[in-house]
Structure formats: structure tokens, C-alpha cells
Measured scan of single mutants.
Amino acid sequence: RALPCPAHVVFRYQAGREDELTITEGEWLEVIEEGDADEWVKARNQHGEVGFVPERYLNFPD
């Protein structure tokens, strides 16, 4: 997929490290980079905060 792209959060995730982003179910993010580890992506939330989130917690519109 082309980046950046929108993504809808389907599961809540609490950041466990400083470089991760806490996300809430129902929130929209902008995915800006593929992650440095499998199944992680770097995203920006509506407040401009950036961090890594688990890709499987997101839904990408067609």
C-alpha cells in the first residue's frame, strides 16, 4: 500500500515503550511508515503524536 494512508483502530492498545503510541478503538490514524519489526507500523494520531502500533490492531479502508 502507498504511504501515508488512513487506518481505523479496531482494538485498543496501551503503549509499552517510549516509541509506541497508545491507541483507542474507533480512532483514525495516519500510517506514515512501515515498522522496523514485523507486524508494526509507525502512525500519527489526530493530536500529532507519532509512534509504533501493532498493524493487526488496524483496519485499512479499500
Rank of each mutant, 00 (worst) to 15 (best):
R1S: 09
R1M: 04
R1V: 04
R1C: 04
R1D: 06
R1H: 08
A2M: 15
A2Q: 13
A2Y: 15
L3P: 07
L3K: 07
P4H: 04
P4Y: 04
P4G: 06
C5W: 05
C5R: 05
C5Q: 09
P6H: 12
P6W: 06
P6A: 10
P6E: 06
P6R: 11
A7N: 04
A7G: 06
A7H: 00
A7T: 01
A7I: 00
H8E: 08
H8Q: 09
V9A: 13
V9P: 02
V9G: 03
V9E: 05
V9C: 06
V10A: 08
V10S: 10
V10F: 05
V10L: 09
F11D: 15
F11V: 13
F11T: 14
F11K: 13
R12M: 11
R12S: 15
Y13M: 03
Y13P: 02
Y13E: 00
Q14F: 12
Q14I: 07
Q14K: 11
Q14E: 12
Q14N: 13
A15V: 03
A15N: 05
A15E: 05
G16R: 11
G16S: 13
G16T: 12
R17G: 10
R17C: 14
R17F: 08
R17S: 12
R17M: 10
R17I: 04
R17K: 13
R17T: 09
E18N: 11
E18H: 04
E18W: 06
E18M: 07
D19M: 10
D19T: 14
D19E: 15
D19F: 13
E20H: 09
E20M: 04
E20F: 06
E20P: 00
E20S: 05
L21Y: 00
L21W: 03
L21G: 01
L21I: 04
L21H: 02
L21S: 04
I23W: 03
I23F: 01
I23Q: 00
I23L: 10
I23E: 01
I23A: 02
I23P: 03
T24Y: 09
T24M: 12
T24L: 11
E25K: 15
E25L: 06
E25I: 06
E25G: 06
G26L: 02
G26Y: 03
G26E: 04
G26T: 01
G26H: 05
G26C: 02
E27A: 02
E27R: 02
W28I: 13
W28H: 13
W28P: 10
W28M: 12
W28L: 14
W28G: 08
L29K: 00
L29W: 00
L29E: 04
L29S: 04
E30L: 07
E30F: 06
E30W: 08
E30P: 02
V31H: 02
V31F: 00
I32Y: 11
I32N: 01
I32T: 07
I32G: 02
E33C: 11
E33P: 02
E33F: 02
E33L: 05
E34L: 12
G35V: 13
D36Q: 14
D36L: 13
D36S: 11
D36V: 10
D36R: 12
D36W: 13
D36I: 14
A37N: 11
A37Q: 14
D38T: 10
D38M: 09
D38W: 09
E39H: 15
E39Q: 12
E39N: 15
E39T: 13
E39D: 07
W40Y: 14
W40Q: 10
W40E: 08
V41N: 00
V41H: 00
V41I: 06
V41D: 01
K42N: 03
K42L: 09
K42Q: 10
K42S: 06
K42P: 00
A43V: 11
A43P: 01
R44C: 08
R44M: 08
R44A: 07
R44E: 07
R44K: 13
N45D: 03
H47A: 15
H47E: 09
H47Q: 12
G48H: 06
G48R: 05
G48P: 03
G48T: 00
G48D: 08
G48Q: 03
E49Q: 15
E49Y: 05
E49L: 09
E49P: 00
V50D: 03
V50Y: 09
V50R: 03
V50M: 10
V50K: 08
V50W: 05
V50H: 04
G51M: 01
F52Q: 07
F52C: 08
F52W: 14
F52E: 06
F52T: 06
F52P: 01
F52L: 15
V53M: 03
V53Q: 03
V53S: 00
P54F: 06
E55W: 09
E55Y: 08
E55G: 09
E55K: 12
E55C: 12
R56D: 11
R56C: 12
R56G: 10
R56P: 09
Y57Q: 06
Y57S: 15
Y57A: 15
Y57G: 05
L58T: 03
L58N: 00
L58M: 03
L58G: 02
L58H: 00
L58W: 01
N59E: 14
N59W: 07
N59C: 12
F60R: 06
F60T: 04
F60K: 04
F60Q: 02
P61I: 15
P61N: 12
P61H: 07
D62F: 05
D62H: 13
D62R: 06
